[in-house]
Every structure is written in C-alpha cells, then in structure tokens.
Design a protein around this nucleic acid. Structure first.
Length: 546
RNA sequence: GUGCCCGUAGCUCAGCCGGAUAGAGCGUCAGCCUUCUAAGCUGAAUGUCGGUGGUUCGAAUCCACCCGGGCAUGCCA
C-alpha cells in the first residue's frame, strides 16, 4: 500500500515537474489524520519557494486512486498529505490471512543463507541467568531470519584451548584431591561453584583414586567440558534451542588456520615481536594500543582464534553473519573484525548485536551472578522460578541495546500484572470461542468460506482489528531487518489490545445472525493465526486454555 | 583518563533514518460480569523527553559540550 501511494505520488511529481526527492510515508500517530501520511510537500516546498500547503494541494489535485484502496485523501497541518485506506481493503485482507497458514512468512530472502552465532559460553560451568538474555534474543532472531526466507545455521563457538578451561581443569582436580585430602589447596581464582564438586565426585565414584596426584590436566578438562556442556545443552533444550554447529577453537589449530593467519599478518608486516609476545598492529585512530595475539608462552590469546573463526565463517559463504555479544565484549569484537579486515577479508556481511547487561531483582534484593562467587543464580533457576515463557518474553521485551531490569517477582506473577499473560490470554480467549462454536454452534461453525460476507463487518472495532492484523507481515520484516524482536512484541500487544476491544464490543456467536457470526468467527481465526505465528517467532507458547 | 551504551510519567520501558496534541504496561483514582475466559474493557490524573547551546520551516529524534549511571580499557575469554 505504501508503495502504491509512493508510486502514485512520484508519477504526479514528474507530471508537475516537481523535484522527486526522498520522502516518508508513515502512519500518523493520530488516526484522525488517516492511515498513512506523506511529507513530500514539506520536503520540496523550500526548493520550489512555495507554501507547502499550496504544493500539497497541487499534488493532491492530480492524484488518482483506486477507490477500493484509498477512500479519501486530504491536506492537513503544515502540508501533510493524509490518506485513508478504504475499509474494503482491510476486509479483503481477512481472506488473505485465512488462506495462508504461514501468514507473515515471506520469501524475500529465499535462497540466501544466514549464520547466527550466539550463546558461545565456554563450558566452564552451567549457564547463569545473565546468559539468558543472549539465549533468548538469539532464539527469536533466528526465527525472524527464517520468517523472511533465510536458511539459518545456528552456531555455538567455544574456546576449549585457553586459560579459562585450564582453570576449570585445575579447579576440578583440586576438588577431586580434596575428597581424599581436605587440605589440598584450591586455586586462588578457581571456579568455586558447587557443580565443580559434583564433577569431582563423579570422577571419584567412576575412577576412585586413579587420578590422584596425576598431572593429566587434560583428563580433568575434558571431563569438565563434557559435564558442563551436558548441562548447557540441557538448558538450551528447555528453550527448544538446538544449535546446528558447535565449533571449537581446537579445530582451528588442527586445520592449520591459526598458523595460516599468523603467517598472513607476518607477511603483511602487520605483526611484530616484543617482550617475547607477538603483537598485532592496530589502527591508532580506533584503538589506543596494539594487541597481543600470541603470548610469551607461545599460546595465542583469544583474539587470534576468534579472527580465524570469523574468517572461516566468511569463507563458508553466508549472505549474512550475525554475532550476539554482551556489552563486555564490545571491544573484542571490534578488534576481531579489525584483524579479519586487515588480513584481507570483507566483513560487510557481518552484523554484531551488542546487548547491555541485565540486573535481576527478587523483591528488593538484587541477584548477583558472578561465576567466581558461590552465590550464582543459574538460568535453570530462573526458568524454575518464572517459567519458560516468561523467561523468554522478559529477556526480549526490551531493545537489546538498553539495560534490562528483570523483575523476577513480576515475571513469576500469575496475574494480569504480567505482560506475558496479556498476549497469551488473547489467544486462549479465542480458543474458547472456537471451542464454543464447535460444540454449540455447529450451524455457524460448519459454514463454508465462500459464504463469507465481509460487508457485514462494519463497526470500528472490527475494522481496526483487521487493520492491525494486516500490518503483521510488515512488522515481521521490519523486526527482522533491524534484528530487533522487541518490535514484534510491541506489535503483538497492539493485536491483543485490538482483539480484547473487539471481543468486548461484539458478541461473536449468535444464532440470530449466523452470517455475521460466521464473519466474526473468521476474524477470530485470523487473530489466532497472527498471534500464533507471532508467538512462534518470539518463542513463546500459544496456550489453548489458561 | 579514553572509548562505547543508557538517561522519556511514581516504577519498568516504547518512540529516535527530524514532522502534527510525546505513548504503553505496572502503580493510583472512578466505573463495567444474567451473554463466547474480568489474566478483560471504559474513563481520569501524571512529563523541564538529564542539562546548555547549535543546525532546521520544524528537534525526544541530528551535532557540540556538560552532568549522572553502566560496560570496557588483561600476554582472561
């Protein structure tokens, strides 16, 4: 519809000899200004040295619209052109929605591939509540991409060769030794969580004292990795998340990719030796100093494998590569992309989502989640406390780029205070009506779609509801384009609101008016479909009863 | 110190590719259940859009500076 109006306006601009400039067609805040509004007259009036209202008038005079699409257009305010979309257009959209089970899904990007890398927590312990934001964001974003046609690879990258994993191994070993010798020292910066003790106990029960005083840290490392990954994957599974690829750092060494990259930097004269370490030259404008890529010990820092990993993803040929990181990785990702670019690779297809930190409130007490402390609030705990849907919803209801206050009491609340229920309740309510139709109004329920008479849908709450529903595909597209699932939640809220109003004002099932009842029943079906599809994207369930 | 993010109603936040009277939920106050789920609907009150300048016909939105909060600034990842 926007395109239709835009093209009509451009045609008139050419006809009048007016300059064709970029202009905006948007929904006005106030619906009395129509459904869509164009600011073209304001944009070009200065160049024409004419009053914007006069310019608008000249354009409007020449504009011709199909009446089944635009019922009215006028000039308002400083010179906006306002357009009123005809009700018939929205009534026809009802049939459109009903004819397509995947209404909202588009093939705009079909044939294209996308790679989404997220979670990517190293297997040093179970996921904590703070990881949840990334977990849930990624889940929704992957869905969004798929709904616009991308073939999506869900990927998890982890460092299994660095210090953090060595630390894990030492921590497990210490706990294992402590079973036999309580005085055995625990590493100063070791992982203190209970889960370390559990892993140690498991090793002890499987092998007894076989590894006592053993220097085989590799054994403890792989035991820890296996146990922790088991927990991480189980947590992800409770969200219905399954990554297609688990990419580990070690494979980059085996394939020689790390060495290759080192050579590239060396040959391009981008790296140098200092204090026994290898440094990568950084652009002085963007970075305050050069960065170490190989430590004096000979081990690469996390940067080098991260760069090699991104190069690997680029070479796999995706049309879009998306990374999700917490804001604490803001600097690293810039360094990594810089390294990839200076090695000669194009990073234009890489989009990085940075999400801000989350603070949890449980009543008045704020919940800490440091891995180094013993008092950790795990993601599993959060799910247990508030439920899977509330967890998913709360984590993505706000823009990623803003700090999130997660109110556990509110999320846990099984009442109207909880925003999740507002949406789900609309769906459950519709299901109630559909059940009622099936059980008690079979005459209406069994009518055929070609008996639908949309002209009976005349009142405002009906038309408004249809109007809202018809925006769904655009909302999906918009949300996907900016990789911002919270936008879809804002929209779904407007659907639920529109439906609740409709419900309040109109009795759906009524034997006195079977034709009208049937039309309204089909509206209910359409709302149900939009809600269900929307829920599917944002990753929450569509309950039949509540 | 430097870089980035954030600052909008009592609280949590939308809006931010400049546009018409700044929105939602919660909380507060006043109404609505003999009818398909009241986890709902209707109405009321609530604002120096952190501050000061600038650009513009027009700024919550863009620019500069300042203030407040967060994150980063590791040969941890």
């Amino acid at each position: 519809m926007k395109d239709y109006i835009r093209n009509s306006i451009i045609a008139v601009l050419n006809e009048l000899g007016y300059p064709v400039k970029d202009f905006v067609i948007d929904e006005p805040k106030d619906s009395s200004f129509g459904d869509l509004s164009a600011n073209i007259a304001l944009v070009i009036s200065k160049e024409l040295k004419k009053n914007p209202r006069e310019v608008a008038g000249n354009i409007l005079e020449k504009l011709l619209f199909d009446e089944s699409k635009i019922s009215k257009s006028d000039i308002a305010g400083p010179g906006f052109l306002n357009f009123f979309v005809s009700d018939d257009f929205y009534r026809n959209e009802l049939i459109n929605i009903l004819s397509n089970e995947n209404y909202g899904k588009m093939n705009k990007n079909s044939g294209k591939t996308a790679n989404l890398e997220w979670v990517s927590a190293n297997p040093t312990g179970p996921l904590h509540a703070g990881h949840g934001r990334q977990v849930c964001l990624g889940k929704a974003i992957a869905n969004l991409l798929e709904w616009t046609g991308f073939e999506v690879t869900r990927e998890y990258y982890y460092n299994d060769a660095g210090n953090q994993m060595n630390n894990l191994a030492k921590s497990i070993k210490a706990r294992y030794e402590q079973i036999m010798n309580p005085d055995y020292p625990f590493p100063e910066d070791g992982y203190v969580g209970e889960y370390i003790k559990e892993i140690a106990e498991k090793i002890f029960s499987d092998y007894n004292d076989k590894y006592r005083n053993s220097d085989d840290l590799g054994f403890f490392k792989s035991a820890g990795e296996q146990e922790n990954f088991g927990k991480i994957k189980a947590t992800l599974k409770s969200f219905g998340i399954q990554h297609d690829v688990f990419f580990n750092e070690t494979s980059l060494y085996k394939d020689g990719n790390i060495d290759k990259l080192k050579t590239i930097f060396k040959n391009k004269n981008l790296s140098y030796e200092k204090d026994g370490a290898t440094w990568l030259k950084m652009n002085e404008k963007k970075f305050d100093k050069d960065k170490v890529i190989v430590k004096a010990t000979g081990e690469p820092t996390y940067r080098l494998p991260d760069m090699a990993y991104h190069i690997d993803k680029i070479l796999r040929g995706y049309n879009l590569i998306v990374d999700i990181f917490g804001s604490d990785h803001f600097d690293t990702y810039k360094e990594v992309l810089y390294g990839v670019q200076s090695a000669g690779f194009n990073t234009d297809n890489i989009k990085v989502i940075i999400h801000q930190m989350v603070t949890f409130k449980k009543g008045n007490e704020s919940v800490k989640m440091s891995k180094r402390s013993d008092n950790v609030y795990y993601l599993d705990d959060l799910i247990k406390d508030v439920g899977i849907d509330a967890t998913q919803f709360f984590f993505i209801m706000r823009a990623a780029n803003t700090h999130l206050d997660f109110d556990i009491e509110l999320a846990k609340d099984q009442s109207d205070k909880n925003p999740v229920y507002y949406l789900q309740y609309a769906h459950a309510r519709i299901c109630g009506i559909l059940r009622n139709a099936e059980e008690n109004f079979s005459n209406i329920n069994s009518m055929n779609v070609n008996e639908l008479d949309t002209s009976l849908l005349i009142n405002q709450s009906e038309i408004n509801l249809l109007k809202t529903l018809s925006k769904f595909p655009f909302e999906v597209e918009d949300s996907a384009k900016s990789l911002e699932p919270h936008k879809l939640i804002v929209f779904l809220n407007s659907v639920a609101e529109s439906f609740h109003k409709f419900y309040h004002n109109n009795r759906v099932l009524d034997n006195e008016n079977p034709k009208l009842s049937f039309a309204r029943l089909l509206i209910c079906n359409a709302v149900k479909r939009v809600l269900k599809n929307g829920f599917c994207i944002i990753g929450i369930n569509a309950p039949e009863r509540m």
